[in-house]
Nucleic acid binder design. Structure first.
Length: 157
DNA sequence: GCCAACGTTGGC
DNA sequence: GCCAACGTTGGC
């Protein structure tokens, strides 16, 4: 089996939550306008897995699991002048922003919230709990990811 | 709604 | 290339 990498992707449940993904089965993870996050997205591979994190809600935390279905896709919202993600500085020839296609794997029965994650992990082991961290996409160390999956149990489709 | 911690922009 | 001003994220 090919080696896969693990990631964490944040979304506000009011904007796009795990229930939306469950319903749609798959989605384009667009609207990323931060270079660091974009670069992480660019290093994703098909079949990589990502923890779905609900941010800006109470309590914030990991709620489900996704799989990468497509990589380095052009983010269509950058060319849409009606979109809040419209970027006038991007060009069709050299699109500045791209995105991945993610599919729904499942939801964790209990999930794990930020407080618990802070208790369990140091910033070195989980970037998410680093103070002032605002990155919406980040890699998760394999050890940490596997341990989390153990704790969380199987995602429920 | 506040604000800390960034990231980005633009003048110089 | 510096840095002040501004905007955004996201926890609280």
């Amino acid at each position: 089996m090919a080696k896969i990498n693990y990631w964490l992707m944040k979304s506000e449940p009011d904007v796009y939550g795990i229930e939306d993904l469950k319903k749609e089965t798959e989605t384009l993870w667009d609207g990323i306008r931060n270079y660091q996050a974009r670069n992480f997205m660019r290093s994703m591979k098909i079949n990589d897995q990502a923890f779905f994190y609900h941010s800006n809600c109470k309590p914030p935390g990991i709620v489900g699991m996704m799989k990468v279905e497509g990589v380095r896709l052009v983010d269509p919202t950058q060319f849409d002048s009606n979109s809040k993600y419209f970027d006038p500085k991007s060009s069709q020839k050299e699109p500045r922003w791209d995105c991945t296609k993610m599919s729904y794997i499942g939801k964790f029965e209990k999930g794990i919230n930020l407080d618990q994650l802070k208790e369990l992990y140091k910033p070195e082991d989980l970037q998410l709990v680093r103070k002032g961290n605002r990155l919406s996409i980040m890699p998760i160390k394999k050890e940490t990811a596997l341990e989390l999956l153990q704790k969380l149990g199987n995602p429920i489709p």
